[in-house]
Simulated assay, not measured.
Amino acid sequence: MDTNEFFAPVRANTDSGNAASPAASDSAVGDSGQATEAANTSSEQSGAKPAAAKAERLPVWVDLHAPTPDEIHEIEERFGIEIPTREEMQEIELSSRLYDEDGALFMTVSVLTKATTDAPQTTAVTFILVKKTLITVRYADPVPFKTFIRRVKRSPSLANSAEAVLFGLLEQIVDRLADLMEQTATDLESLSNQVFISPDEKSSDADHRETLRQIGRTGNLSGKAKDSLLNLHRLGLFLSTQARLKKDAKARLKILSRDIVSITEHANFIANKVTFLLDATLGMISLEQNNIIKIFSVAAAAFLPPTLIASIYGMNFEFMPELGWEFGYPVAIGLMVLSAVLPLLYFKRKGWL
């Protein structure tokens, strides 16, 4: 549970010409209690009206990380909305993920998390745009949220409005996906060299087990990234139909949509390359298996005549002239060796060995 409220920076008082105090500016990021206390201090120092007016400031962003039922109930009562449950956030229907309810926009997308581990996952994150506040509901802590929160703490101006926070988060998510796709493309180049390396090289993966594991992980990551990009693309189309967005917000949305399309194309390229490398690896394994089977087949064919000779002279019939012959045994051994060497020489001349 980690619930935070972020307030827009306190702007200068245009009527009196006096700028807000540093204490008020520092309250741009933090919980509501800290912001109220800083605002009260600013009012006393400047001789302005009582702090009650400052306490009524609505946050531009309420971040609900693994919220408790009491916290959800408090936010619902405070903003007059009904927050989707965790089960409802997992729904895949478009009508359950993107909808307008009494002027509040509900948008649920899948965000990639644990991307650097062997088991990348996607988690559902709900964005609720109600009046002048953005509410995010999440049950994981993806890297884009950590990064954006750090940026807001350093530069509170990034949280001037709910729309600015919304597009800032979406841009951070897209940037993270772009970085992951770039790293994945680099990893695939290394895998490609590993698949087609000469078997005589010391670094070659003889049984290709590690190569197959890496290809599987890369394919899993690219698939989950494409799922997240698809959700973001749908969210962009949904936002493009909203008349409440201002001109600058629509401009950011247009740029964001282009980025999503370009990254999706790159993800499709990666998926195709993963398929190619998987087929190539399986083909290399088949070739190695065929070579092994060929060796066994050649060996069986080469040692078939000696086996036939040995089986004949092992019958010990009474009327076998060679049994009483002084040179019978060495002649039989010589025939078996000769019948084995001649086929091997023939196979080698044909290039089968």
Results as ranks from 00 to 15, higher is better:
residue 3 T to A: 06
residue 293 I to L: 15
residue 21 S to A: 12
residue 112 L to M: 10
residue 293 I to M: 11
residue 233 H to V: 11
residue 105 L to S: 00
residue 84 P to F: 05
residue 276 F to Q: 10
residue 348 K to M: 11
residue 244 R to L: 12
residue 76 E to Y: 05
residue 164 A to R: 08
residue 58 L to G: 04
residue 183 Q to A: 14
residue 353 L to P: 07
residue 96 S to A: 15
residue 211 T to S: 13
residue 213 R to W: 02
residue 48 A to K: 12
residue 326 E to D: 13
residue 299 A to K: 02
residue 192 S to I: 03
residue 348 K to W: 11
residue 214 Q to L: 14
residue 148 F to W: 11
residue 308 L to R: 05
residue 253 L to D: 06
residue 103 G to A: 01
residue 97 R to H: 00
residue 57 R to Q: 14
residue 243 A to Y: 08
residue 158 L to I: 09
residue 43 S to D: 14
residue 288 E to G: 07
residue 17 G to V: 00
residue 351 G to N: 09
residue 162 A to F: 01
residue 10 V to Q: 14
residue 187 D to K: 12
residue 307 T to E: 04
residue 321 P to V: 04
residue 145 F to G: 09
residue 299 A to N: 06
residue 171 E to K: 02
residue 155 S to G: 10
residue 202 K to V: 11
residue 329 Y to N: 09
residue 180 L to T: 06
residue 262 S to N: 11
residue 7 F to R: 03
residue 106 F to E: 03
residue 35 A to I: 01
residue 341 V to D: 12
residue 228 S to K: 05
residue 227 D to R: 11
residue 255 I to K: 08
residue 80 G to W: 05
residue 151 R to L: 06
residue 90 Q to M: 14
residue 24 A to L: 11
residue 168 G to V: 03
residue 2 D to V: 14
residue 93 E to M: 06
residue 5 E to H: 10
residue 333 I to M: 15
residue 1 M to Y: 08
residue 42 S to D: 11
residue 284 M to A: 12
residue 63 D to I: 04
residue 234 R to F: 14
residue 32 S to F: 12
residue 118 D to I: 09
residue 223 G to P: 05
residue 131 K to C: 00
residue 246 K to Q: 13
residue 171 E to W: 07
residue 17 G to I: 02
residue 9 P to Y: 03
residue 219 G to K: 09
residue 102 D to M: 08
residue 229 L to C: 06
residue 269 F to S: 10
residue 91 E to D: 14
residue 121 Q to C: 09
residue 37 E to V: 11
residue 187 D to E: 15
residue 51 A to C: 06
residue 311 S to N: 01
residue 70 D to Y: 08
residue 279 D to Y: 00
residue 228 S to A: 07
residue 135 I to Q: 04
residue 229 L to Y: 05
residue 16 S to C: 07
residue 273 K to G: 04
residue 182 E to A: 14
residue 10 V to L: 06
residue 79 F to H: 12
residue 31 D to T: 12
residue 60 V to Y: 01
residue 311 S to K: 02
residue 80 G to I: 00
residue 32 S to V: 13
residue 185 A to S: 12
residue 276 F to E: 08
residue 39 A to I: 10
residue 253 L to C: 02
residue 147 T to H: 04
residue 246 K to V: 13
residue 122 T to L: 07
residue 96 S to N: 13
residue 225 A to C: 13
residue 237 L to M: 15
residue 87 E to H: 13
residue 313 Y to S: 09
residue 90 Q to K: 15
residue 47 G to H: 04
residue 316 N to H: 09
residue 326 E to S: 13
residue 309 I to E: 10
residue 197 I to F: 04
residue 142 P to N: 09
residue 238 F to W: 08
residue 175 D to W: 00
residue 180 L to S: 04
residue 199 P to F: 03
residue 109 V to G: 02
residue 50 P to I: 05
residue 342 L to C: 08
residue 244 R to A: 13
residue 152 V to K: 01
residue 105 L to R: 02
residue 251 A to W: 08
residue 296 F to P: 06
residue 80 G to Y: 02
residue 123 T to C: 10
residue 31 D to A: 06
residue 137 V to S: 01
residue 346 Y to K: 09
residue 215 I to K: 09
residue 336 M to Q: 12
residue 292 I to F: 03
residue 220 N to I: 03
residue 93 E to V: 02
residue 203 S to R: 14
residue 98 L to N: 03
residue 218 T to D: 13
residue 274 V to W: 00
residue 238 F to H: 07
residue 4 N to V: 14
residue 303 F to V: 08
residue 314 G to H: 09
residue 290 N to S: 10
residue 148 F to V: 05
residue 267 A to T: 10
residue 140 A to V: 00
